[in-house]
């Protein structure tokens, strides 16, 4: 197995989390923070503010009236959700273009957005706050692929060659061609950005949720299942034309029945039609 720290060092300069996202993370940790404090922090970045409001008004959130201010968004969605939207915008802006890799980044992000919708709906049925965590973990579960495509396009071409010649899943091809996979890479980057452990653990174990720490196993199971549902609905592409097998224990842990799964899939296809809202 390759040394992931060396792999990241070989990528060269990595973008750091923007000041506003780091500041939001600090504000969220402070129990005295108000919606107005969040508004002030975001007001320094009008572009980000506009994108957050566009996402908040998408059909995924389904609010009857239009939300026009960050203060309202914070009151309705909560601090964490608004920070997650800011984080999403930052990552999509920095890891969306990779002409040289042969990797279809638009299709990749569409797959991630579909996974996020599906994970959010599954999480919503499982407990308080799990939906917001599930949404952002779904969106960023394959972060390692987008970073690899931007920073090491030649490596991605090797992986795509193995996918084509050996008819294997992308992560299997990564291990054969490079000695590591996107799950390990994405988790290592999230650790460097000091993102919450549940995001790190979910990214690392979304192909093998049983290996996640006990406190994060449910969320890893949700994202594992949502990733597979997104593939079954042909939402974008994860870089291969295949679908992994559902881990039986993960499916059982979610407590879902197939009738509910079908309803979630149908609902998510409607929201997926609006996925362009996520792109700058």
């Amino acid at each position: 197995m390759a040394d992931i720290d060396k792999v990241i060092a070989d990528f060269g300069d990595m973008p750091t989390l923007p000041h506003v996202v780091a500041r939001l993370t600090r504000l969220i940790a402070n129990p005295n923070t108000t919606a107005s404090d969040i508004n002030k922090a975001l007001s320094r970045d009008p572009g980000l503010t506009a994108r957050i409001l566009r996402l908040v008004n998408s059909s995924y959130y389904g609010f009857a009236r239009r939300i026009t201010t960050i203060t309202n968004a914070v009151v309705i969605l909560g601090f964490t959700q608004v920070r997650n939207l800011a984080l999403t915008a930052f990552i999509m802006d920095n890891f969306s273009v990779s002409a040289a890799s042969g990797f279809d980044m638009k299709a990749f992000w569409r797959h991630s957005i579909g996974t996020a919708f599906l994970a959010g709906h599954i999480g919503r049925g499982l407990g308080v706050k799990l939906d917001e965590d599930a949404f952002v973990c779904g969106l960023l579960h394959d972060l390692g692929k987008s970073v690899m495509a931007v920073k090491a396009p030649a490596d991605v071409r090797k992986v795509l060659d193995v996918v084509g010649s050996e008819n294997v899943l992308f992560y299997e091809a990564e291990r054969r061609a490079l000695g590591y996979d996107h799950a390990t890479l994405g988790a290592a980057l999230m650790e460097r950005w000091n993102l919450p452990e549940l995001m790190v653990e979910t990214a690392r174990e979304h192909h093998n949720p049983e290996a996640a720490g006990e406190g994060h196993r449910l969320l890893a199971s949700v994202v594992h299942f949502a990733d597979i549902l997104a593939r079954a609905l042909l939402m974008g592409s994860g870089g291969d034309p295949l679908i992994p097998r559902i881990a039986e224990a993960a499916f059982e842990r979610t407590g879902l029945n197939w009738r509910t799964v079908e309803a979630i899939m149908r609902r998510s296809t409607e929201e997926y039609a609006e996925s362009d809202l996520f792109f700058a």
């Binding site: 597979i228 549902l229 079954a232 609905l233 042909l234 939402m235 974008g236 592409s237 679908i243 097998r245 559902i246 039986e248 499916f251 197939w258 799964v261 079908e262 899939m265 149908r266 296809t269 997926y272 039609a273």
Partner: peptide
Amino acid sequence: DDPLMRELLRIAILCAREGLVRG
């Protein structure tokens, strides 16, 4: 041969036939 994957395929086919799948 996997019962979970067979069930998922059944739903995916329904969604595709109804035009819900746009990929």
